[in-house]
Structures are given as structure tokens and as C-alpha cells.
Design a protein around this nucleic acid. Structure first.
Lengths: 197, 197
DNA sequence: CAGAAATACAAGTAAAAGCTCGCATTTGTC
DNA sequence: GACAAATGCGAGCTTTTACTTGTATTTCTG
């Protein structure tokens, strides 16, 4: 019974992932407010009926997408920040981390419009807040590894602020020209180094 | 004819302002995605038919609101930043400007969700970008008055970055407790001073 | 192979939201 | 006071959209 269910669910889980992929694409193309479930179904190459076999309503699709994003990012940054060794110079470190953020951003346009838009309801905003706090905590513990004298409370504030700075610049990069974008990234790195040293 | 039209339009303009006020309230209460034109009409104490006499569609209402906001902010910051004298210490200056931003933010909740949400389409995002650039230019010229050696291009980048930092912290203040919010404001001021000096 | 569970689908439903229409009322000029 | 233009109304039309239903097909166990 369990075995049989598992096998069936394997196909279903793949289908669910396809639906989330489709939703991601639709958001990237027409934006979150214009997303319709029928559009997602069409993009996923299935009928609305099939879509509603895996997600009970539109909300669950968005929740699923956000969960997938937050899990992925949480895991990535936890590992990435834990791997930071205290001996690497601050400017190099900041440069690497900012570059990785920019790379992810350009790879996943839907991510930002979902998690950091006011369009989404309270639930998604809360999820975004939790993710922010979690990453900020990892930044904080990394900072304290580099500067043992730093108070925990202060480190948390700094982590949250540094993360906010990065997030603030991201949308500006997208809408600017490549050269302007590069300038902005450079200035962001400078500001972070000045702030954190 | 023109005179008569003007007199009628005076009444109409007042009515339009009432509609925008109503839209602002509705956004503040239920959020932008849940806003309906009928709700706006009801809140403005008029029928849907009357509303559509002044705005051809929902989009125009939002455009009107955004225009009113951007005009107001543009004017405010142009005057405020032009009035900055070069002799006031950086930390005091930053403290004042940040405090004024926070005050406006708490007074106008709809402003942020409209201009800095991904809910709104490209048009509103562009309007937000133009406002950002305009204010950044004023910050830049203020910075150059304080530091004559500063290159224009660099000053512009700094203005844009400083503004981005302020905007990034705003949403965090709202969702945090008052004490935490005060800490965040303090940390923002510190980061700005470190960055700009 | 049989039967059950899961998956797939297309057409369709019900409600919501944007917007219109025809008509009544007010405002301002002659 | 009369006429025209602007304003005001609210019931209802139209479209959209989230979601359902009934049925057909595939997948896997015994």
C-alpha cells in the first residue's frame, strides 16, 4: 500500500515540480498580479483539472513556490556562510558574496517579485521575513567568527542591515544598463566594506 | 465656454481628489491587490458610475495616485535638500533626513505598497524609478556642496545608494516591534554616516 | 489479466470585478 | 427662468478567473 502510494506520488511529485516551474515562468513573464491558474496549467502543458489535482487552490501553488525558494536559499546561504574562513579579507569576502547574490538574482527573476513585493499577502511577506532573519543570523555568526569581540545583538543588526543593502540594490541593477549595473554593484561593495569594517 | 468649463472642472477636480483619497485609504486597509473600484467608489461616497466619469479605468486611478505621490515627494525633497547648509555635521544631517523619511513612511502606508511593490505593473515601477533618480540627483548635488572635490558621477552613485539603503530599511521597521524599529533606524544612520564620510 | 488507485482532461459553473447605460439632478450663463 | 453642460446615480452587463465535474486513460499490485 505504502509502496504503491509512493510510486504513484513519484509521478505526482514530478508533476507538481512542473507546475511550480510553469508558475515561475509565468511570473517572470507577465508578473505576479497577472498570473492566472489557467495560464500556469497551459504553460505546464496540462489542463486546469490536472493542476487542481495537485494543488487545492491558487494560494497553494504560490506557497509551494515560495517554500521551494526559501528552502533552497536558506540551505545555500547556511552552507555558504558557514564555509567562510576568518582569514579572508573583508573586501574580497564582500565581493564574492555580492557577486553570488547578483548571479542568483539574474537566474531567478520570479524570486524577487514573489518574496519582496507587497502584492503578495501577509503570509508570503512573513515567509520572506523569516528567510531574511535566518540569513541575517548566519551573516551575524560569520561576522562574530571574524571579530570575536562583536556583541551578538549588534552582529544581528549588522547582518540584517547588510542583507537589506544587498536586497535594495538588486532591483536597481535589473532596470539599469549593464555598465550602470556594474557601477552599482561596485558601489554596493564599497558601502558594505565601509559599513562592516 | 472655457470659463464655464473651468468652473465645472473645479468641482470635478475636487471629486477626483476625493477618489484618490479613497483609493489611498482602501490600499492602506486591505492592500493594493484587494482593491476594487466599487470599494473605492463606496469609500469616496459616490457611485461607480460617478467614479468612471473622472477616471476611464482602474489603471488611471492608480496612475493618478502615483503621480500625486511622486509630485509631492519630488517637491518636498527638492526643497528639503536644497535647504541643507554645508556646515551642519554629517551625523546630524543624516539623523534628520532619516527621521523625516520614517515620519512620512508611517503617515503614508499606501505610498510604499504602491511605488515599491512588484504588484504594480511596469508603468508604476518606472515612475518609482524616475522618482528615485530625481531624489538621488538632489542628494548628489547636496553632497557636492558639502564636498567640492567629489566627482559628479560618483556623487550620483552615492546618492542613489544612500537612498536605496533608506528604502531598504523602511519595510523592516513596519513589521518590527517599536524597540527593534528604533534599533534599525539607529543602525541605518550609523551605516549611512560610515558610508558617506 | 483484473481491478483499483492515481492521473489526465475538456467543458463548464459560479462569483467577482471592471465597467456601461439611461436617466435624474445640479451648476452656471444668457 | 430657460437652456446646455457637467455631474450623479445604481442597476446590470460582460468578461475574466478560480475552481468543479464526469469521464477516459495510465500505472501498478495481486
Amino acid at each position: 500500500m505504502a509502496e504503491r502510494t509512493v510510486r504513484r506520488q513519484a509521478r505526482g511529485l514530478k508533476r507538481m515540480a512542473e507546475i511550480l516551474d510553469a508558475a515561475e515562468q509565468v511570473i517572470a513573464e507577465v508578473g505576479y498580479p497577472e498570473l492566472t491558474t489557467n495560464q500556469v496549467a497551459a504553460r505546464a502543458g496540462m489542463s486546469p483539472g490536472s493542476l487542481y489535482q495537485f494543488f487545492r487552490n491558487k494560494e497553494e501553488i504560490l506557497d509551494g513556490l515560495v517554500t521551494r525558494y526559501t528552502d533552497d536559499r536558506q540551505e545555500f546561504w547556511a552552507g555558504r556562510l558557514a564555509a567562510v574562513t576568518p582569514d579572508v579579507p573583508l573586501d574580497v569576502l564582500v565581493g564574492q558574496l555580492v557577486d553570488e547574490s547578483v548571479r542568483f538574482k539574474s537566474r531567478s527573476p520570479a524570486y524577487w517579485s514573489l518574496l519582496y513585493g507587497t502584492a503578495t499577502g501577509d503570509r508570503l511577506a512573513k515567509a520572506a521575513g523569516r528567510l531574511h532573519d535566518d540569513i541575517a543570523r548566519h551573516i551575524a555568526s560569520m561576522l562574530r567568527r571574524r571579530s570575536p569581540g562583536l556583541a551578538e545583538e549588534r552582529a544581528l543588526l549588522m547582518g540584517s542591515m547588510a542583507l537589506a543593502m544587498v536586497k535594495a540594490v538588486m532591483p536597481m541593477i535589473t532596470s539599469a544598463s549593464p555598465e550602470r549595473g556594474a557601477e552599482l554593484v561596485g558601489e554596493l561593495k564599497f558601502a558594505l566594506v565601509r559599513y562592516l569594517s
